[in-house]
Amino acid sequence: MVGTSTAFTKERAPCGKQVGGSRYHEDDGSGIVCNDVNWACGCREIVHEFHDGSCRTRIVRHDGRMLLNQLSAEHAE
């Protein structure tokens, strides 16, 4: 898999601050997709989609507080 990283200047982070950061996207072309967003304040959002259609989403504030840790169990048919 080859990933791409792009910077952004101002977006609202999970903590509410408007800060810059970077977005990383990776796709294997067969169903696995990774999207990671890292804000300059330290907040992070991680979304991984899997071949079976399930999705893992984690959102963590810069202070370490987990705001969301979810695994969807939906399977593509």
Rank of each mutant, 00 (worst) to 15 (best):
C55T: 14
D52W: 03
R44T: 12
I32K: 14
Q18P: 00
H62W: 05
G29Q: 05
H25T: 11
R12F: 00
R56F: 13
E49K: 09
H75N: 00
R61F: 08
L68C: 03
S54D: 03
A40T: 14
R65G: 02
H75E: 13
A73I: 12
T9A: 11
L68T: 05
T9M: 05
Y24E: 10
F50I: 03
R44A: 08
V19H: 04
Q70I: 02
D27C: 11
G53A: 10
V47F: 01
Q70E: 14
C34F: 12
A13H: 01
T9I: 03
S22I: 12
C41L: 15
T57C: 07
F50Q: 04
T6A: 10
A7I: 06
L71M: 15
D36R: 10
D63Q: 08
I46P: 00
H48Q: 15
H25L: 15
H48P: 01
G42H: 08
E11D: 08
H48C: 14
G20N: 04
L71D: 15
H25D: 11
I59W: 00
D27G: 04
E11F: 02
R65Q: 09
C43I: 00
C43L: 06
E11S: 05
I59R: 01
R61W: 09
I32F: 10
G21H: 10
S72K: 10
P14Y: 06
G20E: 04
I32T: 15
S30M: 09
F50A: 09
S54I: 06
S54M: 13
N69G: 09
N38G: 09
E45W: 01
G20P: 05
F8D: 03
R65K: 06
R12P: 00
R12C: 06
G21Y: 07
K10P: 00
R61D: 05
I46R: 03
V60K: 00
S54Q: 10
N38S: 13
G20F: 02
E49C: 11
G31I: 07
G21V: 11
K17T: 02
C43R: 00
C41E: 06
M66F: 07
H51Q: 08
H75D: 03
D28E: 05
V37R: 08
A13M: 01
R56T: 03
D52M: 08
C34H: 13
P14S: 07
R61T: 04
W39S: 02
G29W: 02
R61C: 12
S22A: 14
G16I: 00
G21P: 03
I32L: 07
C34Y: 14
C55G: 04
D28K: 02
N35K: 05
G53N: 02
W39H: 00
R23Q: 15
N38F: 13
A40I: 13
R58L: 12
N35S: 14
E49Q: 12
A7P: 02
E11K: 09
M66K: 07
A40S: 12
K17I: 05
Q70V: 06
N38P: 00
E49I: 12
G20Q: 04
K10N: 10
D28S: 05
L67H: 01
N38V: 04
S72R: 08
E45V: 12
A73H: 10
